[in-house]
Nucleic acid binder design. Structure first.
Lengths: 194, 194
DNA sequence: CTATGTGAATTTATTCACAGCA
DNA sequence: TGCTGTGAATAAATTCACATAG
């Protein structure tokens, strides 16, 4: 569903108002009947003979994915990767807003990047009060587990982890780890000759 | 399989020499029988009563994933994200080495980061001669397609794309796109209450 | 006539249970 | 006894075909 949502948001940006399962399938490189099955599992969103109205379908999928309310994000670790995340402009369409940035480097604390000021990681405890329950971890590998522990303590309920390591959290907390090297390691398999 | 490989590499780093399917399953959060099925699909790697010898299993999986030969990588777009990729130390264990970096900013060209010098994107054509057939794209969104086109022209056969957009390439070229915002958008679904 | 939604058929993946080997 | 490897059973996902609605 997130892939479909991205495709629909892309079409909406380009001014499209409706789309058929075949159109969307071609755009995303999947099958039309797959899309229809997936959509119909959650309800009847389309109009026969016409297709799907992008605006209503988008808001339906956002509701299903719980993206219908604005969510605040904290970024922990403002190195190169953290800075790249702060500079990234693609969160808004999913209802996300970066609301806090943390680092443990005194030289960085207090600096403003975009419209958030970098805070001391010692202030992580304020997240609960500030209703921030989503975090992105972009700290060095050896600090990842400690950071995750502090985030859990601070009431964070989901983490996007960019450190290439296993972090263990209570199972009430959802973690998605993005390991650049491992993703890269998938590619050679699809490169046949040599 | 890439996930299994990462787990095995992790165990090897920590000095482990053999592992049972149950051990590995617990580490990775999957089922033991799933691991055995997956391994046995490619051949008989284990020893009954003992488990799997990590060293031999690792090299077997590397061969399967075509990671048994060293591969050179090019990074295109040395902004925050590109710098983070260049600084990243986790590629080596998969047999990757960053061998080239490119940007179109004259102020950056010629600078050395780590042990690669940033080159002008106009030099992308040299990749074929230098036997570099893997690339990571970390350029702004609106430059992604043009960059991909030039990489394909330069003989690149697989691309890891960090720009949140659709890029189209000949189907002989494999592309994996990592869209941070979309990955983040998967999380709220797993955060039950509010 | 177009495009959805859905049962049925088919294929694929997961899970189990246990034989077989160290 | 411990753990792998695998056939058989079960579940799930994919694909097809078409009735149905606009």
């Amino acid at each position: 569903m997130p892939v479909y949502l991205r495709g629909l948001l892309f079409l909406a940006e380009n001014g499209r108002e409706s789309v058929s399962s075949r159109n969307l399938a071609e755009l995303l490189g999947v099958n039309a009947w797959q899309i229809r099955k997936d959509f119909s599992y959650f309800g009847d969103f389309g109009t026969r003979g016409v297709g799907y109205e992008i605006k209503t379908l988008t808001s339906q999928i956002k509701k299903i994915l719980r993206l219908d309310i604005g969510r605040k994000i904290a970024v922990v670790g403002i190195g190169n990767l953290g800075s790249a995340v702060l500079a990234y402009r693609g969160f808004g369409i999913y209802g996300f807003a970066i609301a806090a940035a943390f680092d443990n480097d005194a030289k960085k604390i207090g600096k403003k990047t975009g419209n958030v000021e970098i805070e001391d990681v010692a202030n992580l405890g304020t997240l609960k009060r500030r209703k921030i329950d989503l975090a992105i971890i972009t700290v060095p590998q050896d600090a990842a587990q400690a950071t995750a522990d502090r985030l859990v303590e601070a009431g964070i309920r989901a983490i996007l982890n960019f450190s290439p390591c296993y972090i263990t959290v209570p199972k009430k907390v959802k973690v998605i780890t993005i390991d650049i090297a491992m993703d890269l390691a998938r590619l050679p398999y699809y490169m046949p000759t040599s």
